[in-house]
Amino acid sequence: MTRPETFQRRSHLYRVCREAGARWRAVNGFGAPAHYGDASGEADAAARLAIADLTALPRAGYKGWGMADWIRDQGVFLPEPNQAQRQDDGTLACRLSSGELLLLADDEEATLIDRLARAWSMDDAVCFPVPRADASARLVVTGSESAAMMAKMCGVDLRGRRFADHAIAQTSVARMNVIVLHNDRGAAPAYDLIFDSASAVYLWGCLVDAMAEFSGSIVGLDAIDALRG
């Protein structure tokens, strides 16, 4: 049986997920919560309101005065600041400012992230890697109630009509700096939260508390994948 402690890379949340009854699968060097014992029920729950730890999924960042030029040279479609754009391989390119890009993969496969890592070199660099894989944790809040629940923690109106799919808000959530990405999973509204990995246990606790009134659930990667269809 897969156990997260046997992996060299571990999410700060693995103990919390273990206590919630997680069953694990190997993802990108981590033991990641696949489900909590009821994969199909979790998919239904995720359509209403759920949170999941996506910290294991690949991500990367590049920052610097020459980021836009370099990243375009690499064949990446670069959106406007505070917008995300899906790339050919499925990676989401999230532009955080004129000079900073965050790359998020929704699957273990992350062709673009790997290719950029190989292409980048310190010599003559005009932008620099940001260690997003370790600096940040990544959670997702999914479901029809997700914007209502987030309103208990965040001062930006995240409802779909005001905050379109692939919009980004870099703001304060539960008094922490969080990148909120509107990233719907199939028909289900969803928000990815990318934030300081050392604060993962804290923010997870805030989310669990906030979603109680909506009977929200903790779900695994399988349920999120199922929503994407």
Binding site: G155, A169, S172
Partner: peptide
Amino acid sequence: PLNGPRNISEF
């Protein structure tokens, strides 16, 4: 200028 209108507490 980067993030649009936000609560002053973010600044």
